[in-house]
Design a protein around this nucleic acid. Structure first.
Length: 348
DNA sequence: AACCGCTTCAACCGCAACTGG
DNA sequence: ACCAGTTGCGGTTGAAGCGGT
């Protein structure tokens, strides 16, 4: 959305160049504004509507000098030029002006050849930096905002299959970047592991995700969309396609619970009874989510542990506040996981 | 108001894979 | 086959924001 707005705005600017009659803030003020961090779309709007571009900037951004003229410094020796470039390379937050230059250039010339792009567009950035800025922030289809429960579920599921293959996981979440997913994992998921005094890669924590977190996400999704609506969403083209693509593109590795580390757990543990077939993906769960219970989720065996907090007395789903929390994690969950951790102490 | 600690996330870094000459 | 340049990926960092004191 944000990215779209950027492009739309840029396009409108192309169609209707801003007037320069009004007195305008200096470049410094525009730059400092941008340096505040995340340039919201409103800031960019302000950039064009209220803020101003002096004529030379306008020419560069809107009329856009062809690359050949931008790189007219061919008279300089290559060595001197590269030396100069080394000195001029900018780092740190991107300014609105830089963003616009990049957007404009990509709109005209397409993505790729980032080093050349950086040079030709007159950006004092490395090609790497340009690529990153474009892919993670400026790309029209980049999606911003909170990670939805559906996306969380998918991330948790795909991470259990592929590990830290952020780029690969991101391909299954349209509009989300690998960086965003990686940050989500580190800030949210790892935080919970820390709270539980458990390594994020430990099987115990993975179980927590599988048996507590993911079912709760499923329930939250169901609660949010209602039964019928949820069933419909379960079979949405995106969900189906991404799940199918994920499965087809690269079959999941041998199930984590069946990996060597898991084999050491012994037959008395909960997951020892699990088979690969009994571990559905969230999407396969969607289909029969109405009848899903903890017992149905991945072959849960309540006898192995005390009643999971995510079940009510009838073995059903919890309701109300417990599921409404942003983190889907509660003190009860902590208690539950601590209980599990005690059981698994040697393995955590 | 000032400070502090924590969280978030954009951006950077290093390395590996890829590509073209 | 080799090499240099480029691209992509995952890990890490640090600035900004925010809430608590």
């Amino acid at each position: 959305m944000h990215g779209c707005m950027l492009i739309c705005m840029n396009t409108s600017v192309l169609a209707e160049p801003p007037t320069f009659a009004a007195a305008v803030p200096t470049h410094d003020s525009a730059t400092s504004q941008a340096a505040r961090g995340h340039q919201e779309s409103t800031l960019l709007a302000a950039f064009f509507q209220d803020v101003l571009l002096d004529l030379s900037t306008y020419l560069r951004l809107v009329v856009f000098l062809p690359p050949s003229s931008v790189t007219s410094a061919t008279t300089r020796s290559q060595a001197a030029q590269s030396e100069e470039e080394m000195e001029e390379i900018r780092r740190g937050p991107w300014t609105t002006e830089e963003d616009l230059v990049l957007i404009k250039y990509v709109a005209q010339h397409g993505e790729g050849r980032w080093n050349a792009l950086a040079r030709c567009a007159g950006l004092k950035r490395t090609g790497k930096s340009c690529r990153l800025r474009w892919l993670n922030y400026l790309r029209p289809d980049v999606r911003r905002g909170n990670i939805t429960p559906e996306e969380q579920l998918l991330i948790l599921d795909l991470h259990s299959r592929w590990g830290n293959r952020w780029s690969k996981i991101a391909q299954c979440l349209p509009g989300r970047t690998d960086n965003e997913i990686k940050n989500y994992w580190r800030t949210r998921v790892q935080k919970h592991a820390k709270q539980l005094h458990c390594d994020v890669n430990s099987t115990t924590f993975k179980d927590a995700i599988r048996y507590v977190w993911m079912p709760r996400l499923l329930e939250r999704i169901r609660a949010a969309s209602g039964g019928a609506a949820f069933s419909a969403s379960c079979t949405s083209p995106v969900a189906t396609a991404t799940a199918a693509a994920a499965a087809a593109a690269d079959p999941p590795p041998s199930h984590p619970l069946k990996q060597p580390e898991r084999a050491t757990l012994g037959p008395e543990t909960v997951e020892s009874s699990l088979s690969e077939d009994s571990l559905p993906t969230p999407f396969s769960c969607f289909a029969d989510c109405h009848s899903t219970t903890m017992q149905g989720w991945g072959g849960w065996e309540p006898d192995s542990l005390s009643l999971p907090v995510c079940c009510d007395e009838q073995g059903g789903w919890p309701s109300g506040d417990l599921l409404s929390s942003e983190s889907l994690w509660s003190m009860e969950d902590d208690w539950f996981m601590q209980h599990q951790i005690q059981s698994y102490q040697p393995y955590c």
